[in-house]
Amino acid sequence: MSNSSKTLATVDGVSGTGPLRGRALPKPPPIKQFFDSKIVSTILYALVIGVICYGSYAGAQSMGYNWQWYRIPAYFYSFTDDGFQVGELLIGLGATIKLSGGSFLLALLFGLIIALLRLSGLYIGTKVAVIFLEFIRNIPLLVLLYLFYYVLGPIFKYDRITASVLCLAIYHSALLSEIFRAGINAVVKGQWEAASSIGMTKSQAYRYIILPQSIKFMLPPITGEIVHVIKSSAIVSVIAVGELTTFGRNIISDTYMSFEIWFTVAAVYLVVTLTLSIGVSYVEKHYAVKT
């Protein structure tokens, strides 16, 4: 393990699992204590949200905007003579979940491969992984999508859905690989030595000893990454892949209800990602008690 002494990656969200975790925090200054207190912060939140709501409402009024909230539910579901109908927004949500889910699974696989390459200690493996990482991290997601769709698409003859899944998977695999690497490095060196000393090969040690232990370091940032994938999946609407954002845009061009639809679309994303985060933090607590 020649590179196990390297510092942990400081990807967003990973730094919290570092060795500094148990250190006592200094007491915050009085001003901060005041703003952090429950009552004050609740009032502040209410104020901010009130101002935003009132601002949009008043702004819309002065524009003479015609609110049509009553038409929104029909875009989720409706009952017609043919029975229950799923609305466009729900269909879009389904597509978003499929797209993000597929991309995420693929990203997990790519990410693990990149992380293992990087940790392999092989000169060429490390270099390939690092170059890949720097490349992906320093290109805007939108440009990456265009590359996958307009450049690689015609060359390798795949459609826009494949382009979207590949682009999202590659982009997030770079971020996930850093999470994996940090998680793997967080397992103490003695575990490697114990595994080696009973004759395990490197891959056996990874499989039976190291990875099972690093899961608990990786789980929180990985779920953060699921939320991230769902959010970044909206970008594929620019190449007209049918998902939540695209469907929202289509509805608007038919009905001009841009305020209602964008508020609704945002709320749908929020509900999905918040549900995920809450579900995962529950699982995490469960996990923590067990081990």
Partner: peptide, 15 residues
């Protein structure tokens, strides 16, 4: 290594 056992100061059991 299969034929040489090792016991470490810090035990290094698999937790």
């Amino acid at each position: 290594r299969q034929n040489v056992g090792m016991v470490f100061q810090q035990f290094n059991l698999f937790p």
